[in-house]
């Protein structure tokens, strides 16, 4: 049980960290760009919300394997396949939770508008400087919401992990898989305990996010 809890938290933490790093600049570009390509990229980012995890899991299973597009790179790392590994799960989780990180941050950047950045430019701030010292602090509510949602979404992930994980204790066996196995093997009591904690956790996460949003709205109406 403990290895699964630690592994689940580890996966969610690593995924969220990676998502902050790639999600923030991507959200910035999506919020500022007036090009039609931004709409196309926005759509691609939103796909995991509507796609069944099995579709995503299936493509990942093929893509991560020895016949996938990255197959020629794998031997350099001494690997045959990225499936059945923690790194494979991280790749899957980053793609699966991308919209949950990008969309709140993009919305936060949009709300800022042009004015603060124009002021920054007039004060001779470089675009990079304006991004870090004006845009990011103003959008921190969005970054926070995105991080919490991505973290929680990764903890609740099941379909993708089931399809590419291979259920290896300590490496790919996360909590949602434990629940699935408990139900499959008729250990309903154990399934009930884990599920109940998951419900409590999800409730707490969503409640905290909503309370923070309410407070930020009062501070910046």
């Amino acid at each position: 049980m403990w290895p699964a809890i630690v592994l689940t938290l580890e996966l969610a933490t690593v995924t969220t960290a990676i998502l902050i790093l790639i999600g923030t600049p991507l959200a910035w570009w999506l919020a500022r760009s007036k090009s039609w390509t931004a709409d196309v990229i926005s759509t691609v980012v939103a796909l995991p919300i509507v796609l069944p995890p099995t579709a995503l899991g299936f493509y990942l299973l093929v893509a991560l394997g020895p016949h996938g597009p990255f197959a020629s790179l794998l031997p350099f790392f001494g690997l045959r396949s990225l499936a059945f590994s923690f790194n494979g799960l991280v790749i899957g989780s980053v793609i699966y939770s991308l919209p949950f990180m990008v969309q709140p941050i993009r919305n936060a950047f949009r709300v800022i508008g042009d004015a603060p950045l124009e002021v920054a430019a007039m004060l001779r701030a470089s675009p990079l400087d304006a991004f870090f010292s004006v845009a990011v602090p103003l959008a921190q509510g969005g970054i926070f919401t995105g991080s919490i949602l991505s973290f929680a979404h990764t903890i609740g992930e099941f379909g993708v992990v089931l399809m590419i994980g291979g259920d290896i204790p300590g490496k790919t066996e996360v909590l949602s898989i434990i629940i699935f196995n408990d139900v499959e093997t008729m250990q309903w009591r154990a399934a009930n305990i884990v599920s109940a904690y998951m419900v409590l956790f999800a409730f707490a996460v969503i409640l905290v996010t909503m309370m923070i949003e309410r407070r930020t709205r009062r501070l910046f109406p």
Binding site: L61, L64, G65, P66, H67, S81, A83, L162, M163, D167
Partner: peptide, 15 residues
């Protein structure tokens, strides 16, 4: 999780 999945793992070359 089941035989179909075991088949997928092998047929896709991951195992």
């Amino acid at each position: 999780a089941n035989l179909s999945q075991a088949y997928q793992f092998i047929a896709s070359g991951n195992a």
